[in-house]
Protein backbone atom coordinates (compact mmCIF):
# COMPACT_ATOMS: atom_id res chain seq x y z
CA UNK A 1 0.00 0.00 0.00
CA UNK A 2 1.40 3.38 -0.90
CA UNK A 3 0.45 5.01 2.42
CA UNK A 4 2.95 2.82 4.24
CA UNK A 5 5.80 5.01 5.41
CA UNK A 6 7.91 2.58 7.42
CA UNK A 7 7.92 -1.17 7.12
CA UNK A 8 10.21 -3.26 9.26
CA UNK A 9 10.36 -6.95 8.67
CA UNK A 10 12.01 -9.61 10.84
CA UNK A 11 14.66 -7.15 11.93
CA UNK A 12 17.54 -8.42 14.03
CA UNK A 13 20.17 -5.93 15.16
CA UNK A 14 23.49 -6.41 16.91
CA UNK A 15 25.63 -3.92 18.78
CA UNK A 16 29.30 -4.84 19.01
CA UNK A 17 28.48 -8.39 17.91
CA UNK A 18 25.81 -8.83 20.57
CA UNK A 19 22.33 -9.41 19.19
CA UNK A 20 19.92 -7.00 20.84
CA UNK A 21 16.83 -7.11 18.61
CA UNK A 22 15.39 -10.41 17.45
CA UNK A 23 13.00 -10.43 14.49
CA UNK A 24 11.07 -7.19 14.98
CA UNK A 25 8.12 -6.40 12.68
CA UNK A 26 6.45 -3.02 12.47
CA UNK A 27 4.40 -1.01 9.97
CA UNK A 28 3.74 2.72 10.31
CA UNK A 29 1.51 4.51 7.83
CA UNK A 30 1.46 8.19 6.94
CA UNK A 31 -0.18 10.29 9.63
CA UNK A 32 0.08 7.63 12.33
CA UNK A 33 1.70 7.89 15.74
CA UNK A 34 2.92 4.74 17.44
CA UNK A 35 4.21 4.33 20.98
CA UNK A 36 6.85 1.89 22.11
CA UNK A 37 6.86 0.72 25.75
CA UNK A 38 9.32 -1.48 27.50
CA UNK A 39 11.57 -1.73 30.52
CA UNK A 40 15.10 -0.30 30.54
CA UNK A 41 17.46 -2.27 28.36
CA UNK A 42 14.68 -3.95 26.38
CA UNK A 43 16.01 -2.65 23.04
CA UNK A 44 13.69 0.31 22.36
CA UNK A 45 16.48 2.81 21.67
CA UNK A 46 18.33 0.18 19.64
CA UNK A 47 15.31 -0.06 17.35
CA UNK A 48 15.23 3.71 16.84
CA UNK A 49 18.97 3.91 16.24
CA UNK A 50 18.77 1.05 13.72
CA UNK A 51 15.90 2.73 11.83
CA UNK A 52 17.87 5.99 11.78
CA UNK A 53 20.91 4.09 10.50
CA UNK A 54 23.66 4.61 13.09
CA UNK A 55 26.61 2.47 11.95
CA UNK A 56 27.13 0.97 15.41
CA UNK A 57 23.75 -0.75 15.08
CA UNK A 58 24.33 -3.58 12.64
CA UNK A 59 21.37 -5.18 10.90
CA UNK A 60 22.11 -8.90 10.88
CA UNK A 61 18.76 -10.08 9.56
CA UNK A 62 15.59 -8.66 8.05
CA UNK A 63 15.09 -5.29 6.44
CA UNK A 64 13.83 -1.74 6.82
CA UNK A 65 11.85 -0.05 4.06
CA UNK A 66 10.92 3.65 4.01
CA UNK A 67 8.44 5.02 1.48
CA UNK A 68 8.69 1.73 -0.37
CA UNK A 69 12.47 1.86 -0.66
CA UNK A 70 14.75 -0.65 1.04
CA UNK A 71 16.98 1.49 3.28
CA UNK A 72 18.58 -1.33 5.25
CA UNK A 73 22.02 -0.46 3.88
CA UNK A 74 21.51 3.26 3.34
CA UNK A 75 23.87 5.57 5.29
CA UNK A 76 22.56 7.62 8.19
CA UNK A 77 22.67 11.01 6.47
CA UNK A 78 20.88 9.72 3.37
CA UNK A 79 18.08 8.36 5.54
CA UNK A 80 17.82 11.80 7.18
CA UNK A 81 17.60 13.47 3.79
CA UNK A 82 15.00 10.93 2.70
CA UNK A 83 12.72 12.08 5.54
CA UNK A 84 13.60 10.34 8.79
CA UNK A 85 14.42 12.46 11.83
CA UNK A 86 15.27 11.68 15.39
CA UNK A 87 15.00 13.35 18.76
CA UNK A 88 17.89 12.06 20.86
CA UNK A 89 17.52 11.09 24.46
CA UNK A 90 21.08 12.14 25.33
CA UNK A 91 22.53 14.12 22.44
CA UNK A 92 26.24 14.95 22.52
CA UNK A 93 27.62 18.40 23.27
CA UNK A 94 29.33 19.77 20.16
CA UNK A 95 31.67 22.47 21.42
CA UNK A 96 31.80 25.60 19.32
CA UNK A 97 28.78 24.66 17.23
CA UNK A 98 25.86 26.88 18.09
CA UNK A 99 22.26 25.79 18.34
CA UNK A 100 21.55 28.35 15.64
CA UNK A 101 24.02 26.63 13.27
CA UNK A 102 22.23 23.30 13.60
CA UNK A 103 18.75 24.76 13.25
CA UNK A 104 19.96 26.55 10.11
CA UNK A 105 21.42 23.28 8.80
CA UNK A 106 18.13 21.48 9.51
CA UNK A 107 16.32 24.10 7.43
CA UNK A 108 18.61 23.18 4.52
CA UNK A 109 19.03 26.80 3.50
CA UNK A 110 15.26 27.27 3.29
CA UNK A 111 14.99 29.36 6.43
CA UNK A 112 16.02 32.84 7.40
CA UNK A 113 16.70 34.53 10.71
CA UNK A 114 13.02 35.36 11.08
CA UNK A 115 11.86 31.76 10.66
CA UNK A 116 14.58 30.53 13.03
CA UNK A 117 13.58 33.10 15.64
CA UNK A 118 9.94 32.06 15.29
CA UNK A 119 10.81 28.38 15.83
CA UNK A 120 13.00 29.24 18.79
CA UNK A 121 10.24 31.28 20.35
CA UNK A 122 7.77 28.49 19.85
CA UNK A 123 10.11 26.02 21.58
CA UNK A 124 10.99 28.58 24.25
CA UNK A 125 14.60 28.34 23.10
CA UNK A 126 15.23 31.94 21.98
CA UNK A 127 17.97 32.40 24.58
CA UNK A 128 19.73 29.25 23.47
CA UNK A 129 20.32 29.96 19.77
CA UNK A 130 23.64 31.63 20.46
CA UNK A 131 24.77 28.91 22.85
CA UNK A 132 26.85 25.86 22.07
CA UNK A 133 24.53 22.98 21.29
CA UNK A 134 23.59 20.95 24.38
CA UNK A 135 26.35 22.53 26.47
CA UNK A 136 25.00 22.98 29.98
CA UNK A 137 21.40 22.38 28.82
CA UNK A 138 18.97 20.97 31.40
CA UNK A 139 16.89 17.88 30.62
CA UNK A 140 13.94 19.97 29.46
CA UNK A 141 16.11 22.28 27.40
CA UNK A 142 17.63 19.32 25.58
CA UNK A 143 14.19 17.97 24.68
CA UNK A 144 12.95 21.37 23.48
CA UNK A 145 16.12 21.86 21.48
CA UNK A 146 15.77 18.44 19.86
CA UNK A 147 12.15 19.14 18.90
CA UNK A 148 13.03 22.60 17.61
CA UNK A 149 15.61 20.97 15.32
CA UNK A 150 13.07 18.43 14.10
CA UNK A 151 10.50 21.16 13.45
CA UNK A 152 13.11 22.81 11.24
CA UNK A 153 13.98 19.51 9.56
CA UNK A 154 10.32 18.51 8.99
CA UNK A 155 10.90 14.77 8.69
CA UNK A 156 8.07 12.60 7.43
CA UNK A 157 8.91 10.07 10.14
CA UNK A 158 9.98 11.32 13.57
CA UNK A 159 11.67 8.92 15.96
CA UNK A 160 11.30 10.33 19.46
CA UNK A 161 13.40 8.73 22.17
CA UNK A 162 11.76 9.41 25.53
CA UNK A 163 10.78 13.00 24.77
CA UNK A 164 9.41 13.52 28.28
CA UNK A 165 12.26 12.12 30.39
CA UNK A 166 13.82 14.69 32.68
CA UNK A 167 11.10 17.22 31.83
CA UNK A 168 9.12 18.93 34.58
CA UNK A 169 5.34 19.12 34.55
CA UNK A 170 5.25 22.69 33.25
CA UNK A 171 7.44 21.85 30.30
CA UNK A 172 5.80 18.57 29.40
CA UNK A 173 2.73 20.38 28.01
CA UNK A 174 5.01 22.43 25.75
CA UNK A 175 6.83 19.28 24.66
CA UNK A 176 3.43 17.78 23.84
CA UNK A 177 2.47 20.83 21.77
CA UNK A 178 5.72 20.70 19.83
CA UNK A 179 5.27 16.99 19.08
CA UNK A 180 1.69 17.59 17.98
CA UNK A 181 2.89 20.25 15.59
CA UNK A 182 5.65 17.99 14.32
CA UNK A 183 3.17 15.17 13.71
CA UNK A 184 0.58 17.50 12.18
CA UNK A 185 -2.00 16.66 14.84
CA UNK A 186 -3.70 19.97 14.11
CA UNK A 187 -4.52 18.71 10.59
CA UNK A 188 -7.47 16.48 9.78
CA UNK A 189 -6.49 12.83 10.07
CA UNK A 190 -6.77 12.29 6.34
CA UNK A 191 -4.50 15.25 5.65
CA UNK A 192 -1.71 14.16 7.98
CA UNK A 193 1.45 13.14 6.14
CA UNK A 194 3.88 12.94 9.03
CA UNK A 195 4.22 9.97 11.33
CA UNK A 196 5.94 9.30 14.62
CA UNK A 197 7.36 6.49 16.71
CA UNK A 198 7.67 7.52 20.35
CA UNK A 199 9.57 5.64 23.02
CA UNK A 200 8.01 6.33 26.36
CA UNK A 201 9.03 4.82 29.63
CA UNK A 202 6.40 6.47 31.79
CA UNK A 203 3.69 7.09 29.22
CA UNK A 204 3.21 10.68 30.49
CA UNK A 205 3.60 12.07 27.00
CA UNK A 206 0.46 10.16 25.92
CA UNK A 207 -1.59 12.55 28.09
CA UNK A 208 -0.63 15.21 25.55
CA UNK A 209 -0.03 13.32 22.31
CA UNK A 210 -2.49 10.81 20.92
CA UNK A 211 -1.01 7.57 19.65
CA UNK A 212 -2.84 5.03 17.51
CA UNK A 213 -0.83 1.92 18.25
CA UNK A 214 1.26 0.77 21.17
CA UNK A 215 3.90 -1.93 21.35
CA UNK A 216 5.55 -3.63 24.27
CA UNK A 217 9.16 -4.59 23.78
CA UNK A 218 10.80 -7.09 26.09
CA UNK A 219 14.31 -8.43 25.62
CA UNK A 220 14.56 -7.32 22.02
CA UNK A 221 11.19 -8.68 20.90
CA UNK A 222 7.83 -7.01 20.40
CA UNK A 223 5.60 -9.16 22.53
CA UNK A 224 2.38 -7.22 22.24
CA UNK A 225 0.59 -4.65 20.12
CA UNK A 226 -2.64 -2.79 20.77
CA UNK A 227 -4.30 0.33 22.10
CA UNK A 228 -1.53 2.33 23.78
CA UNK A 229 -3.71 3.55 26.64
CA UNK A 230 -4.82 0.01 27.47
CA UNK A 231 -1.23 -1.21 27.34
CA UNK A 232 -0.13 1.62 29.59
CA UNK A 233 -2.94 0.91 32.08
CA UNK A 234 -1.87 -2.73 32.25
CA UNK A 235 1.77 -1.81 32.73
CA UNK A 236 0.87 0.68 35.45
CA UNK A 237 -1.33 -1.79 37.23
CA UNK A 238 0.64 -4.97 36.87
CA UNK A 239 4.09 -4.03 35.65
CA UNK A 240 6.00 -5.51 32.72
CA UNK A 241 5.97 -8.92 34.37
CA UNK A 242 2.32 -9.31 33.45
CA UNK A 243 3.09 -8.40 29.83
CA UNK A 244 5.76 -11.08 29.74
CA UNK A 245 3.33 -13.59 31.15
CA UNK A 246 0.63 -12.57 28.64
CA UNK A 247 3.08 -13.08 25.84
CA UNK A 248 3.88 -16.63 26.92
Amino acid sequence: MDDILLSISQLSVAVEDKEILHGVDMVIRKGETHALFGPNGSGKSTLLMAIMGFPRYQVIKGNIAFKGKDITNLPLDERARLGIGMSFQRPPVVRGVKTLDIVAACLKGQGNQESIDKLAEEANMADFLGREINYGFSGGEIKRSELMQLLAQKPELSLLDEPESGVDLINIALIGELINELLEKNHLIRDRKHAGLIITHTGHILDYVNARTGYVMIEGRIIGEGDPHEILATIKEKGYKKCIECAK
Binding site: G85, P92, V94, D101, E132
Partner: peptide
Amino acid sequence: EYLMARGLTRTEATATIVRG
Protein backbone atom coordinates in the same frame (compact mmCIF):
# COMPACT_ATOMS: atom_id res chain seq x y z
CA GLU B 1 26.75 11.28 13.49
CA TYR B 2 24.57 13.68 15.45
CA LEU B 3 24.87 16.24 12.67
CA MET B 4 24.49 13.57 9.98
CA ALA B 5 21.17 12.61 11.60
CA ARG B 6 20.08 16.17 10.74
CA GLY B 7 20.84 15.52 7.07
CA LEU B 8 24.40 16.84 6.79
CA THR B 9 26.87 14.73 4.84
CA ARG B 10 29.93 13.48 6.70
CA THR B 11 32.03 16.22 5.06
CA GLU B 12 29.51 18.94 5.93
CA ALA B 13 29.24 17.68 9.50
CA THR B 14 33.03 17.64 9.89
CA ALA B 15 33.32 21.14 8.42
CA THR B 16 30.63 22.43 10.79
CA ILE B 17 32.44 20.98 13.79
CA VAL B 18 35.82 22.32 12.66
CA ARG B 19 34.30 25.76 12.06
CA GLY B 20 32.83 25.65 15.56
